[in-house]
Simulated scan of single mutants.
Amino acid sequence: MNTLAASARHRNGRLGRLALAILPVALVSVLGSWATLPNIPTWYAGLAKPPLTPPNGVFGPVWTALYGLMAFAIWRVLSTHPAMPGRGRAVALFYLQLALNGLWSWSFFAAQSPAAGLANILALDVAAGATFAMFRRIDRLASWCLLPYLAWIAFATYLNAEIWLLNG
């Protein structure tokens, strides 16, 4: 009976960690899309953009891949022993940067404010960089999974800053 109960607890723990990895990332993706998509053919289409701006069709597939890597990375960290030094801080930083990620779509697109988006994405850059550093101490594969995300948000910071400058 004890073995059966322990097995059920272990299975529930794995499912819980999986839910804590996938659901918040999926929620941010959906909420970000709600803020972004209606504004692309209207407000965003009318903005002056820098020369390195990718076609609109690139953003969806890139973000899908990045969100998948982010969910996998946090799942790896959540799957480490809860008493591991720095684990709690790393998890908190991940969810902070995830919230900033979602907030960017609302500040840039929904509020139609490149200035607010820039302020937000600069905070996101710092939080995501700190998350990478914390993940690196806990699980190197998890940290490597965040590298494409860090590169993309650095590029997004350039795009946001240029849009702000070109349209301010």
Rank of each mutant, 00 (worst) to 15 (best):
A161V: 05
A115C: 01
Y149V: 08
A151L: 15
W75Y: 15
A119W: 11
G86Q: 05
L118W: 10
S79Y: 07
G32Q: 05
L47Y: 11
P50R: 11
V28Q: 04
A92W: 00
L122G: 05
A6D: 15
M70H: 03
S79D: 12
T157K: 04
A92G: 14
R17G: 15
G68H: 07
G102E: 05
Y95R: 08
R14H: 09
W152L: 03
L52P: 09
L103R: 04
W63D: 10
A111P: 05
W34K: 11
A116D: 01
L103C: 10
T36P: 12
L150Y: 01
A45W: 12
V28E: 02
Q97V: 00
P41H: 09
R137I: 00
N2S: 13
P51W: 12
T131Q: 06
V77I: 10
S113N: 11
R14E: 08
A73T: 03
L37D: 14
L150Q: 00
G32L: 14
L159P: 06
L4D: 10
W152M: 05
I40L: 15
A128I: 01
C145Q: 00
A65T: 14
G117N: 02
F72Q: 00
F132V: 03
L27S: 13
A142T: 00
W164C: 04
L166I: 07
A127Q: 06
M134S: 09
S33W: 13
P41M: 07
F109E: 08
P24H: 05
W43M: 06
T64L: 06
I40P: 14
A130H: 01
I163V: 15
N120M: 15
S7A: 13
I40G: 11
H81M: 01
A92S: 12
A161F: 15
A142P: 02
S143E: 00
L15R: 13
A45F: 03
Q97P: 08
W152P: 04
P50N: 08
T42H: 15
T131S: 12
R14D: 04
V28S: 10
G57K: 10
P54Q: 07
M134Y: 01
L118I: 09
A26T: 09
W152S: 00
A92H: 01
S33E: 09
A99T: 15
F108V: 06
T36M: 12
G46L: 04
V91R: 02
A8S: 05
S107V: 13
A73S: 13
R17I: 08
H81L: 01
N167A: 02
S33K: 11
G16H: 05
T157S: 12
G60I: 11
A127G: 08
R17D: 11
A161Q: 03
P55H: 12
F155I: 03
A73H: 04
G117L: 06
A115S: 11
S33F: 14
L146W: 01
N39R: 15
A65M: 13
L124D: 02
L31K: 03
V25N: 08
P50F: 08
Q97D: 06
A110I: 03
Y95W: 06
A73N: 03
N101A: 05
P114Y: 10
G117Q: 03
R140I: 00
